[in-house]
Design a protein around this nucleic acid. Structure first.
Lengths: 213, 213
DNA sequence: GTCTATAATTAGATAGAC
DNA sequence: GTCTATCTAATTATAGAC
């Protein structure tokens, strides 16, 4: 039952995601990562050059998964019709929420790294985060102009959206204690996504919003 | 120029906030914390029982500061009149955003700890987070009933509010790289708070919101 | 009270047997 | 390719001099 080269690489990567997400780069130990898949610690340095290279591979893997999830929406150059742009954006937010619930490690790693400036942070921002930020900014600009988006500056919308969309999953262990519910349950995730979309896009049709004063 | 007992305790505490916020509990070292205020590492074990006790003292200190900031609002048992409740809530959100910008360490520590279940997390949730969660839920319930709050479930509002309100400050090093702006600048903070409040309370008067479709 | 010295653990990385 | 053994460095905590 010997594992192939690709098998063990993949297993180590999966274990690394979980450990880095839960404990951060410093808190995670290569020993724990290896033990998680019944491997020995030196195998990490064999299959990956270093702890840092393993971390980078894990981040690349997660962002590739997210990219796959959002690929067919092609938002930045998307539909001119504001209503159609809004529904495409709503769909993107829903998928982002679902992804954050299914793969909390991505946002966990982001939030762990970004509390302090470092080479790792700069690498991650330049390679992965900036494209997402610019895409959100561009789309939000058009949604605002169309009177559909909530009154948030385009340069700030990224943080409202990402912060709100990811926190209950980034901090799922806390959310379980606090709410008594399981935030990764399908119904919980969909309800959360519905609320977020309706809040971000009060001017969108489809989901009527009534305001009494 | 010998420091008094209280002086050095306070300085160690301040240094601990910054280190724990930036690196998390595991990533922070008691040596770095001590060096930051020109003290020696064993002084931490003298003035505090352990690294964990220092961490707990830092968390208590931060939540006390936040409590001071929000004390006079007395939201849960606040005004019956929905419009006045809304403006009190809006003020609470603004203060929370300002606090997150001025003391990012609180939300940094929360988000670092809550990625994994632990005794530290349970202690922090029971002692500090749950009262905040329950207060938000109770107020949000009334704001929803009055048609003022955005369509988010009361049990979920906490995560939308806290996630959105804190992320640009928790991840300020990233936000600097990404936006080119300084997210702790007064104008940036106020603009962010304005956007968040208007988004959360679309039914509130005072700040007219127009919807074109 | 403070500091030096050090104990006891644990980390990531490497060398070499097989 | 894999694993044992080990190296170097860094961690928290403690003991004891002053």
């Amino acid at each position: 039952m010997r594992r192939t080269r690709d098998d063990i690489r993949e297993q180590l990567l999966g274990a690394a995601l979980v450990e880095f997400g839960a404990k951060g780069f410093d808190g995670a130990s290569t020993r724990s990562i290896a033990q998680r898949v019944n491997a020995h610690q030196p195998q990490i340095n064999y299959h990956f050059a270093s702890k840092e290279a393993l971390w980078a591979a894990a981040v690349d893997h997660l962002f590739a998964l997210l990219g796959d999830e959002l690929a067919d929406l092609a938002l930045p150059g998307g539909p001119e019709d504001p209503a159609r742009l809004a529904s495409a954006f709503a769909e993107a937010v829903r998928r982002f929420v679902r992804f954050a619930a299914a793969h909390p490690e991505l946002n966990q790693i982001m939030v762990h790294e970004a509390t302090e400036d470092s080479d790792r942070l700069r690498w991650m921002v330049d390679r992965h985060v900036r494209p997402m930020y610019e895409a959100i900014r561009a789309v939000w600009q058009r949604l605002r102009a169309a009177g559909i988006g909530a009154p948030i500056e385009p340069a700030m919308a990224h943080y409202v959206i990402v912060g709100a969309a990811s926190l209950p999953f980034v901090n799922a262990p806390e959310a379980r204690l606090l709410t008594g519910a399981e935030p990764t349950d399908r119904a919980w995730v969909e309800s959360y996504a519905d609320g977020l979309v309706a809040t971000l896009l009060p001017g969108a049709s489809g989901r009527p919003v009534r305001f009494s004063s």
